[in-house]
Amino acid sequence: MTTEIVEPASGGVDLDPTDQSIGVDRVAADGMAVKARSQRQMVIRRFLRHRLAMSSLAVLTSMVILAYVGLWFWDLPYDRSGTVVDGGRSTIDLIPWIDGDGFQMGQHPFGQDNIGRDYFAVTLKGAQGSITVAVVAGLVATTIGTIVGALSGYFRGLTDTVLMRIVDVLFTIPLLLLAAVLSRRFDTGGAIGGALIIASLIWLTTARVIRAEFLSLREKEFVEAARALGAGHTRIITKHMLPNVVGSIVVSATLLISAAILIEAALSFLGFNITEFSLGRQVQTYRTAFNTRPWLFWWPGVFIIVIALCINFIGDGLRDAFDPKQTRVRQ
């Protein structure tokens, strides 16, 4: 990603006709080798300046802290029922300045469910479950996708044909249906099991992306140079190729995590158990209460939307940080 230094010299992005040549204008970077700033620093700097991504990161972090740490400090456990007060209404002041009494959490900020459990605690527990499933699924899927894509793109030939045909076939099967069947077949219960089911379905795009990157990287002269030095496959893949696709891997991981959140919610909503506690499951459970006690439906729903959105925005920010050229086109 030396583009950063090269661009000023050649002036334009795609306009410069000399860009195509071997290096005539790329050598322009000669004079421009600005300051010694590593690419990692560049990526971080660009990400930090991406406002939407940064605020999403802040929101997401606070939600995660709230879900995992907040539950500890909240004195009402999620599994203890009690007396339903005021029909279980939320006691949180959503618009505190209207009635003039300032911000108040109240006893049950998110209200109570029909058996008097504190719904704030329940929602946080659900968020915990959803986030765990999504993160595990996203990471596992990224790993599978990266490995398959890397092998496919590096070895090409038969390996590539076999692996990619498998991917093609999997692509044609409706995802949700398959997940539903799997979750029925293997009644997992735990978050990890559920995560694995989701992961086994969403790695396909990552595999294709990484394969494409490997195919083009493989033709790069530095990879050829490594072969000429006598470096083995493992060394070439891990030392020379993978570090050059970190950007794509990170971006696709974030996108997979947000996809996993939504898939989990959808599956739970359809009544297939992915994990015991999850936001999707709460939505499913209380969808019948929509008319009577809508907050039981809304709170987990809002959580799902906010988490998924935040992760998507962070993914956007990362992509722009890793690949500044793309940003420019969009503007």
Binding site: G23, Q39, E221, F222, A225, A228, L229, K239, P243, N244
Partner: peptide
Amino acid sequence: LRQRMQIVFQDPYASLNPKL
């Protein structure tokens, strides 16, 4: 044998791994 026969490439930009 590769120790004894080596190669220098044309494109000084593509022939060095940018991450190392």
